[in-house]
Write a protein that binds this DNA or RNA. Structure first.
Lengths: 178, 178
DNA sequence: GCCGACATGTAATGGGTTACATGATTTA
DNA sequence: TAAATCATGTAACCCATTACATGTCGGC
């Protein structure tokens, strides 16, 4: 699949430029792309060629032109078709777990150090998601009665839950190894 | 980083051939590589050139030669150095969560269908990890008193926990959307 | 005067996947 | 006789990342 449906999805809410998308990807803690230029601008060109989006160039004086992309009806249909695609299992690439798999070769101090650093990383990430969650909630007004904000809320909650459990797990393990 | 340290790690326990490694990757539910030839054989050549492993060719009559790779002391040191490398956060690429992000555009039936399929996928995966866990435990004899099997047990338990929570979450969400 | 935000893009590289290619032996 | 397992490897491709490249404007 790839980033193209994420872009289509974002465009289905509002027209955006490549630069906007870049920022959105970079900011969103749960959208896992780095938000690098190469992919975004190339994908937009590709989507445009396939008539899934339209491009509108806004010339500005004394500033580079903004290219605003808007989803087309064809694009909407493509998005909808993708939404009905069979879901895949998450691909959890846990670099740390790999290290831990062989970490019995470390001495006690180095092992605890590894765990402690991971714990710290998790803490930071958890905090960042929590802040984003609160920002989102204050924007939507917290009433998750209709379906769309309910889904958004449950998704972020799941991410928070994930990092929370990962954190609790590593803390337990550290205590157990003392 | 990449697959090279996973290979070094596996070789640190016992000498193996490319084919052995391929199987190990394909079987292991928590090692996230597909276990494709290209990467494994290429990486082994690379490791060999870098003197991190030695290669021993076992000629067999009426069968292709087996190339058995053994980790060197340099390789052991490289592995140990990597183990002390700062851990990274897990990269969770959850395709399904992306779909769900825009899934408010689906009607009730399609949305429930999407969730139901995901639930089923999780169930299968959970079962496979559980089985692998039991196999591992019967091999090591379940006494996680020394450090190494304790780590192995905690790692698999964490994976089980992850899929368990993901499953519970999707079930709750389905109920909530009824 | 420098840095960060705005705004677009390209080049090089790495990491990973599927599919292709070959050929023997065992098992159903 | 068709398949699965053993055993090695290559080709083509996709997806993603970092770094490079260019240029304006506003604020400190």
């Amino acid at each position: 699949m790839s980033i193209q449906y994420a872009i289509l999805g974002l465009l289905s809410r509002q027209p955006l430029t490549g630069y906007d998308l870049k920022k959105l990807f970079a900011e969103a803690e749960t959208l896992y792309w780095s938000g690098n230029n190469n992919q975004i601008y190339r994908t937009l060109v590709k989507l445009h060629k396939a008539n899934l989006v339209t491009q509108e160039v806004h010339h500005q004086e004394d500033a580079p032109a903004r290219k605003v992309y808007t989803i087309t009806t064809v694009g909407q249909e493509a998005l909808l078709a993708w939404l009905q695609t069979p879901p895949e299992l998450p691909q959890v690439r846990n670099h740390f777990m790999l290290q831990l798999t062989w970490a019995d070769q470390l001495d006690d101090a180095d092992l605890d150090n590894l765990l402690a650093r991971y714990e710290e990383e998790l803490r930071v990430k958890q905090m960042m998601i929590r802040e984003q969650h609160q920002r989102d909630q204050s924007r939507t007004g917290n009433r998750a009665t209709s379906r769309s904000p309910l889904l958004a809320a449950r998704i972020t909650e799941r991410w928070l839950d994930y990092y929370g459990h990962e954190l609790a797990w590593v803390q337990d393990l550290r205590r157990e190894l003392l």
